[in-house]
Design a protein around this nucleic acid. Structure first.
Lengths: 357, 357
DNA sequence: TTGAAAGCGCTACCAA
DNA sequence: TTGGTAGCGCTTTCAA
């Protein structure tokens, strides 16, 4: 080291290619190719020779050249706003698992909720001739969104890349994009009904955005629970807020200050619920003795909070697996254009009857 | 639908290529190419024509063809055991962020701690001619591991792919693989010293594996703290256990049953600490009044536990960003073969002086 | 069972 | 400013 001029990694000049391998192995390029495509029409001895040559040259087939002639990429792109939270992890793992089973590559892209980044990535994945692009997770579902997705369908369709909506509802008529989602409305419904059945009447809803594809329907479900119980929906108090621990905290703190007399909080998501819990505590109140609290998602830690959180479980892993299968398997895709996986209420210790008035 | 025979996505037969675009735009292939490589030597009017043609054909450049001639992939592969936990999220986000800044693609692969999968992915990434492969996170650092990494260096080196160790120590002499890690030993040291300073003497260490690249040094640090304080290292009680909430729970439950008289627990990671907390509670003891507890990593939720957890903060985001920069920038790489980022003790409510004997 | 050669879609070089 | 064209590394006919 230090002295020589030709230092660096092995094969510094040009990388070995299949022609080099063929030459060293004293066979034709075609034969060498057959060996690496594990075709069976090669005599074992010949195969050995080729393999040895490859080994000695540090040869690795070039996936780009293969994709070029073979006609396709073998990548599944997973497009999400952020890669945070256990829900993300389960979902992504599910996709990754099935993707690997199909012998494809899993590619993760984060948009940070930036439309431009999203568009760039979709285009990029088209250029890569990805097998599929999964648009994952909650989003604001306005007309702009519809139009954007339609654009993606067209752009990707032209290069043979399949678009899939994962954890989102289908885009309305026209575009026929497969959509794998879960029952947000039902989850919101059962959480709220649970509280109503316990005797709560004035419930504070925190963290819901009516236009968002996940929390919107959850809110609708909550409303429906009031309706079905024959109770005035006006008793469902709405605290506007976003999707973080801090904002959940802030929202509840404010609601408490306004003294609107709620005895329970339905949070739009577990993270929000954690923030709510903080705020309730800080106000010197107890959960569930003074105020009941529910979350949504059932991320692992919420069972370790004090008290353990009552929440709605979402089958993230399965969502991922099903999405990937639909993305990669044409038969499944034809069969399942729209799948809605069930959600399930998990009652733990954060909900109880309201304190006696 | 149903009747026609030529249905399906647009351009059903063959996808448009640059030649088609050139033909429609009535220019040469070379000119069309220049437009998409945004080279400046094209008259605006011509550029327009080409762009319009591309648009009308739904043309998207083929990244594989480009990589083939351009000589390289633009992918950064992130190889980790699992994509769980906020630490993973921060780390991966950091890598992704910088990767995007360099105009590269971020690719995530999970090995599930399976050597075979790891090897397959490394090879696959070599075939993709990835710009870099990051081996991320804790691992058992035996001689097998050393040998394996050496193999990767050779395999990837031959195709021009850079290998980087991220959150792991360098492999010992010989292979010169860049390594970006953080101060595990120092973290273990300061957590333990903190407990010692509070007056604890018999401390239970949970979740450490001496051979593992992260918890191993953390344990060494803990021992060192005893040594530096002039205290018998034998008072650091070792509870063998793995890396999950459940195993932390089990370990502490057992230790409690054995009545070894410890007044504090150092957990090898926050997740383990959560399990310890569970066990301590179940035994009817309080944290920190009866038993103090520290974690490691500082994942977001631990500040919401009751009590908030004293732990060691790891700069995961920066770890990711630095790793990516070293991976992608030859100058940085030459300068920083080995980086150790600092860790920091965060004292919260789970630690206090031991109860009076 | 093996080999020769024609592309896959693109860029980059050299000429015009 | 534009066009012709030789590859990039590979697979895959078609022949031998």
């Amino acid at each position: 080291m230090g002295g020589g001029s030709s230092g660096g990694s092995p094969g510094r000049g040009s990388r070995a290619n299949i022609r080099d391998v063929a030459r060293v192995a004293e066979v034709s390029v075609a034969t060498a190719s057959r060996v690496f495509s594990d075709s069976s029409l090669v005599r074992p001895a010949t195969r050995e020779k080729v393999l040895r040559a490859a080994e000695s040259l540090g040869y690795l087939p070039n996936a780009h050249a293969r994709a070029l002639v073979g006609g396709g990429g073998h990548t599944v792109a997973f497009l999400t706003a952020e890669m945070v939270g256990p829900s993300f992890a389960d979902l992504a793992s599910g996709v990754e698992q099935v993707t690997a089973e199909y012998g494809h590559l899993f590619m993760l892209c984060t948009t940070h909720d930036d439309v431009e980044r999203e568009q760039r990535y979709v285009r990029l994945m088209g250029e890569q001739r990805a097998a599929a692009v999964l648009l994952v997770g909650a989003t604001e579902a306005g007309p702009d969104y519809q139009r954007r997705v339609l654009g993606y369908v067209k752009e990707l369709g032209a290069v043979g890349t399949q678009l899939i909506l994962c954890g989102r509802p289908p885009v309305s008529p026209g575009a026929d994009v497969p959509s794998i989602e879960y029952d947000n409305l039902g989850g919101g419904y059962s959480a709220t009904r649970h509280l109503l059945e316990l005797g709560h009447r004035r419930i504070l809803a925190v963290g819901f955005s009516p236009l968002q594809t996940t929390t919107g329907p959850r809110l609708t479900g909550a409303r429906q629970a009031y309706g079905d119980a024959g109770l005035p929906v006006d008793d469902l108090l709405l605290a506007e807020s976003c999707f973080s621990i801090e904002e959940g905290d802030r929202a509840v703190t404010q609601a408490l200050a306004e003294d609107t007399g709620f005895t329970a909080v339905v949070a739009a998501a577990d993270h929000v619920a954690i923030g709510c819990l903080r705020a309730i505590r800080r106000a010197g109140l107890r959960v569930p003795e003074d105020i009941s609290l529910t979350g949504f998602d059932d991320i692992p830690v919420v069972s370790d909070l004090t008290p353990a959180l009552t929440t709605v479980r979402v089958p993230f892993g399965e969502l991922g697996r099903v999405s990937a299968r639909v993305a990669l398997d044409e038969v499944e895709r034809r069969r399942y254009r729209h799948v809605v996986l069930p959600t399930e209420l998990v009652v733990r210790a954060s909900t109880a009857p309201p304190p006696p008035a």
